[in-house]
Design a protein around this nucleic acid. Sequence first.
DNA 1: TCTCATGTTCGACGACTGTCGACTATCGAC
DNA 2: GTCGATAGTCGACAGTCGTCGAACATGAGA
Lengths: 113, 113
Amino acid sequence: MASRNSAPLTHPDQQDIDLSRVMAALSDPVRLGIVSALDGIDRGVPCCSLELPVGKSTASHHFRVLREAGVLLQSDEGTRRMNQVRRADLDARFPGLLDLALAHGREAPVQVR
Amino acid sequence: MASRNSAPLTHPDQQDIDLSRVMAALSDPVRLGIVSALDGIDRGVPCCSLELPVGKSTASHHFRVLREAGVLLQSDEGTRRMNQVRRADLDARFPGLLDLALAHGREAPVQVR
DNA sequence: TCTCATGTTCGACGACTGTCGACTATCGAC
DNA sequence: GTCGATAGTCGACAGTCGTCGAACATGAGA
């Protein structure tokens, strides 16, 4: 879905993932909640399946930040935008970072419907 | 030094160091440069010994952010404020985070005079 | 075709952040 | 006591960030 004329979901290549951006992305509690909820799920999860404490447009913003930082992989399936954590890429580039962040980011758990 | 009536240099206890704050602190290139320059030096280093690309008040701000996040230990010695990375505390609380950040944060190296 | 569900984009807003210059505080040396 | 070095504080400013509501775009079904 998304707007017709939106660029086709830009994701950074693995080697272009920037630590500063990843850390900035993960330093927001809402975004850490998203990643935490999505981690370990092997299929893509649509945005609407997460019970986030913010509005739709704000959630959209957070998903974009995570995608552009290289944390999430997004792909369109019909009217749904599926989300998946890029664990392999992140583990390859910053070994241990994701585990560290998730281990310490369980304060505001996000439910997956 | 500092102002006479400033609170006596608040540092978070090891167990109170918050990952979000640490990551936010380390996601700024100037601050990452500071930590990178200070890491591995066993003695305290005064603020003025670092050649930072920002003004005095801005540097002061960055040092405070790092201290309040739990990344730096600051202590006054006469007219100097000595700085040291809290490596033991950080390694204990978030094993590997500092090494990860420093390994990937050498873009804007900061000189120690 | 019409409608609904999903999700984006676009201003707008307040809060926070990074930056600066000017001023102040403290200490040590003269 | 005075002066210089070191360093913090205090506004001020522009830019970014997180948030929202309203409008728009797309695809799936009825």
